[in-house]
Simulated assay, not measured.
Amino acid sequence: MTAPDLQTARRCPYAPPDEHTRIRDTGSGISRVTLPSGQVAWAVGRLEHVRAVLTDPRFSSDRRNPGFPRFTRDRPAYDIMRRTMIQLDQPEHGPARKAVVGEFTVRRMAGLRPRIQKIVDERVDALLAGPRPVDLVQALSLPVPSLVICEQLGVPYHDHDFFQARSSTLLSRALTAEGRRQSLTELRDYLKDLVAKKAAEPTDDLLGRQLAQGGDPDDVVSLAFLLLVAGHETTANMISLGVVTLLERPEELAALREDPTRTPLAVEELLRVYTIAEFANARVAVEDVEIGDVTIRAGDPVLALSNAANHDPSAFDEADEIKLDRGARNHLAFGFGIHQCLGQNLARMELQIVFDTLFRRVPTLRLATPADALPYKDDALVYGIHEVPVTWDEPA
């Protein structure tokens, strides 16, 4: 029987694609789908099964495996760069993660809070000093995480247009193989030059410390690529989506303004609801594995549908409702298992600071374009919004 095409577009920004929900709620919660590349893969939709896939070493993250899920028919472009941490299985993954995990502890993130607050304040200052309406994406959503990750890695922020353009290109589903390879090559060469300079003249930043600890320069380039791309695109999209969601819920937003201790709960719910990197948890079986009542054979591609799992009614009460006081942290927005996102503490903190600061300082902020008319990123591997025009009233 022919497997149906994998649905990638969302009918509603707040919900998984309809087909993902159907897969999750029908029979075993596991179904075959045809990927845009033509591959037939298993799609796993229930929270318990997704967790099982993401913690079972019989499911590999190695993109070199010919059975690994692909979204294009073209030869993968990432073979021109050494594999990143998220492409490594054990035992290689453990030492690679251990070498950098200390940079993202809760304590180290707390030390960054004053600097992040200053960055956010400066961007809000610039927003208020400019014309109205303004695109929030360009004024705030992109600059804040870009500045933060640049300072953390030791990447010159004046190069942000260069790496943001290439990051966006790499995350587009519409890109040709030639375009993807060109963007990746340009970004790799930029980072190789940057790492070489740091090796010659040591710097006290994340990349400099990796080199000082004996890190192989090619591995540091790979790490820089992973953190630079993931460290600003994902958080930028969550800022935009979160602001739109809160502006559409004025009573709940007023409650957050009155009691900012509720913001962390709202951040968790926004992360769960949107699950912007919904196709990041791809795997390939390296042995026969039984999930539920389905046998997945060695070599079979597997997609763990994190967005469907994060709306699983067996795991979350009224799962399709946005409850900003829910505070559930058992969601999969940051993945699960050994590949769970390194930067999740940083992302949470950035989102909390941005929401608290923006809505406190610009209490009359409102959308200049209706939410349902905004250009959502159905064409990207990381969900978000291309542009969010906003305006506000001058203070009385």
Rank of each mutant, 00 (worst) to 15 (best):
Gln90Gly: 08
Pro91Cys: 04
Ser141Ala: 15
Pro370Thr: 12
His331Arg: 06
Gly335Cys: 08
Ala309Leu: 07
Glu387Val: 06
Val33Trp: 09
Phe104Asp: 11
Leu6Lys: 07
Asp121Cys: 01
Glu19Pro: 02
Leu191Phe: 08
Arg249Ala: 14
Ile119Gln: 01
Thr245Lys: 03
Gly384Ser: 09
Asn281Trp: 07
Asp317Arg: 13
Ser31Glu: 15
Arg22Val: 14
Pro17Arg: 10
Pro389Met: 09
Ala96Ser: 13
Pro69Met: 11
Thr169Ser: 13
Arg108Cys: 10
Pro301Gly: 04
Asp161Lys: 05
His49Val: 00
Gly384Pro: 05
Glu103Tyr: 12
Gly327Arg: 02
Ala110Ile: 02
Ile116Met: 13
Ala373Pro: 00
Ile385His: 04
Arg51Thr: 04
Glu251Thr: 14
Thr235Glu: 06
Pro250Glu: 12
Leu35Val: 08
Ala43Met: 07
Ala319Ile: 06
Phe68Gly: 03
Pro202Phe: 10
Asp312Met: 07
Ala368Leu: 02
Ala368Asn: 03
Glu350Gly: 04
Tyr274Asn: 10
Val221Lys: 06
Asp288Pro: 00
Phe68Met: 10
Ala77Asp: 11
Thr21Ser: 15
Ala319Met: 05
Glu122Ile: 00
Leu127Ile: 01
Val195Gln: 12
Ala347Asn: 09
Gly67Ser: 04
Gly299Leu: 01
Asn307Pro: 00
Arg272Pro: 04
Val289Leu: 03
Ala110Ser: 11
Arg361Gln: 07
Thr26Asn: 13
Glu252Cys: 07
Ala280Trp: 02
Val220Gln: 08
Gln39Phe: 08
Met349His: 02
Gln352Lys: 09
Gly214Trp: 05
Pro143His: 01
Ala96Gly: 01
Arg209Leu: 11
Asp372His: 11
Ala41Lys: 03
Ala371Val: 07
Ser167Trp: 03
Thr176Cys: 04
Ala139Asp: 02
Gly111His: 04
Val220Pro: 05
Asp393Asn: 10
Met81Gln: 13
Phe59Lys: 03
Phe225Glu: 11
Leu253Gly: 05
Thr8Arg: 15
Arg11Leu: 13
Ala285Ser: 01
Thr185Ser: 15
Ile322Thr: 15
Arg82Gln: 15
Pro395Thr: 12
Pro17Ser: 14
Leu324Gln: 05
Glu321Leu: 13
Val155Asp: 10
Ile119Asn: 01
Arg361Ala: 03
Ala126Ser: 09
Gly231Asp: 13
Pro260Ser: 05
Phe59Gly: 05
Pro260Gly: 03
Asp205Glu: 10
Thr55Phe: 00
Ser37Leu: 09
Asn307Tyr: 00
Asp5Gly: 14
His386Ala: 15
